[in-house]
């Protein structure tokens, strides 16, 4: 464990807590894409298949349980909770996430570290995580006023993977056989997808104006 990875995990945790806070306290999911939340639940479900077979550390297991629990409960809130679901913008959140899942699955069948069920699922979860934010970014472009919590949620979600990139660089130079091209490339693509959001987020923060993405 290194400081970059810890910072990444804590930032990721904070993004999930900000979202749960928003949904649980003000009972609203306005501006949040259910499609992205469902993709994230699928990402964690396929990546943490080994949660009970490969014990890494208490920290690792606890964090996996938190990410699994939070992502599925957010999907449950947005689908089932009578108050929260009312604030869900069904008409605007129209990204066909099936068209993200299928290519990632096909790519995982071709590009993986080892052609075993677990490794294919692991590669699938990495490719899917890289593109899972797309429905959310599309929704942000459509909804005019982005509230602070939603903006912070997306910002933290993008920042965590940026920290991970520093973690991979650090591990590459400190651990002799640490090479994971699949992780590195999908992590880089994922972070690049946030580039324009970061640009507008930083500007809105610098000029102290409401975050507004160009249509």
């Amino acid at each position: 464990m290194n400081i970059f990875r810890l910072a990444g995990d804590m930032t990721h945790l904070m993004s999930v807590l900000v979202l749960l806070l928003k949904i649980h306290t003000i009972k609203s999911c306005a501006g949040i894409s259910l499609k992205t939340q469902e993709l994230y639940a699928l990402v964690f479900a396929t990546r943490y298949l080994d949660i009970f077979t490969d014990f890494i550390s208490v920290y690792n297991t606890i964090m996996k349980l938190i990410f699994l629990g939070s992502s599925f409960s957010i999907v449950w809130y947005m689908r089932r909770h009578k108050l929260v679901r009312r604030s869900y913008d069904k008409e605007q959140d129209t990204f066909r996430h099936f068209f993200l899942v299928l290519p990632c699955l096909l790519l995982a069948l071709v590009m993986n570290e080892k052609f075993t069920f677990k490794e294919v699922m692991w590669a699938f979860s990495l490719y899917l995580e890289a593109v899972a934010i797309l429905p959310q970014l599309v929704l942000l472009q459509r909804t005019k006023n982005i509230d602070n919590l939603t903006g912070q949620y997306v910002f933290l979600l993008g920042a965590y993977r940026a920290f991970y990139i520093f973690n991979w660089i650090y591990r590459y130079f400190t651990e002799p056989h640490y090479v994971h091209w699949i992780t590195w490339i999908s992590g880089l693509v994922q972070t690049l997808l946030y580039a324009d959001f970061f640009y507008y987020y930083f500007n809105s923060w610098k000029n102290n104006v409401k975050l507004h993405l160009p249509a």
Partner: peptide
């Protein structure tokens, strides 16, 4: 023992 190194990152 399976030679797969378990993925230690989240």
């Amino acid at each position: 023992e399976d030679n797969e190194t378990p993925h230690d990152e989240l």
